[in-house]
Design a protein around this nucleic acid. Structure first.
Lengths: 195, 195
DNA sequence: CCCAACATGTAAGGGGTTACATGATTTT
DNA sequence: AAAATCATGTAACCCCTTACATGTTGGG
């Protein structure tokens, strides 16, 4: 049900078309919850049926139309209910650790490459999130700008702080991954040393 | 395809029935890759069809039979191919960070409780993994014992080291989560303070 | 003899991926 | 006039969850 809540989260900022949601996903929520368009459009329709959002058909150019969705009161309640409920955790399913546990079967070079790739991957993600944090801090992120429009400075600070904090969590996790991968590289070098 | 590789990993230790695999999952690989029996039995059948494992029907008591699976050469190759290939990363999908990013919509008490639950959850997992590491180190883990049977001390050390290292990675991640959740609690207290 | 453990399934449904598909509008 | 962007889908497939279902064996 997190997709649904990610969509509700987007729509608490402002009314949007499915396409807007899809685009905005890539530059905001998408950094914590990815969704492809093939998932977004059908889900929005289901959410409308369930009364969480309301769609209005608005003209687009001369002949075209598009559907703009707004969150309903029921939608806000549902979103808040999710936020207020105790968190649920999925069973562990960690392909990286699964691999690491059986590296005695891998080629030494592949093991080393695996840890290097792991570091590179997470370093890349950290860059993305740091950019995101910068854009939140200076309010150049359009979704956030819309969100805090007309709010008090105090409110704006509070709203921004949680988003920044979420990305800081991603970064902290990524740093832990990199530290682990670096130790992994040392371990491979120690264990697979050809004498 | 990680389920398949988790099953292959189990079967590199020794031949097993589906039930053995299921049981062992809970005390070894299951800590990094969970799978229910309803997934294991059908997957083993598919793997046999694909020639990765071979099943032999063995008697069980007076009338019963059971099927014991052994990994084939093709199975070992497939497992190693997976280990030697560059890692693939899934798109981000992080319900915890998604929630954290929108805590301005939650009740302050629920936000605090959320971070406390997060800490408690990960503290519990750390305990499990630490027990697991202890069992690996003193070789009281039966799957590992079987795995290193007849191997040189050097080989045994290498095999054990990777498994310990994998669990250390889980623990490192969990510690990062706890540190983050503790900061989250402070943030909630700061932002939601009633004056 | 009963119960725990051993043994093995089916079936419906949810969520996600990948690929395929189409058309209108705005920008260059 | 072409290209990029806006707009919205469908369909097959894979993986996983949850619930239901059944029978055997070994130990107390």
């Amino acid at each position: 049900m997190s997709l649904r809540n990610a969509l509700l989260a987007m729509l608490t900022s402002q009314p949007m078309t499915g396409y807007d949601v899809y685009k905005n996903f890539q530059t905001s929520v998408g950094y914590v919850w990815h969704a492809p368009d093939s998932q977004i459009y059908p889900e929005l329709r289901r959410m409308e049926q369930d009364g969480l959002i309301r769609g209005e058909t608005v003209p687009w150019g001369k002949r075209g139309t598009k559907k703009r969705y707004s969150i309903t009161e029921a939608g806000v309640e549902s979103f808040q209910a999710w936020l207020n409920a105790p968190p649920e955790y999925q069973r562990e399913r960690d392909p990286v650790r699964l691999r690491a546990a059986y590296l005695e079967w891998a080629k030494p070079d592949a093991s080393a490459e695996f840890f290097r790739a792991h570091t590179a991957y997470h370093a890349g993600r950290i860059e993305d999130w740091e950019e995101m944090i910068a854009a939140l801090r200076d309010q150049s992120n359009p979704t956030l700008a819309k969100r805090i429009e007309g709010k008090s400075a105090e409110e704006a600070r509070r709203i921004t702080a949680y988003k920044v904090f979420a990305y800081e969590g991603m970064i902290a996790r990524a740093r832990a991954e990199i530290a682990w991968a670096e130790k992994g590289l040392e371990l491979v070098e120690e264990l697979e040393r050809r004498v």
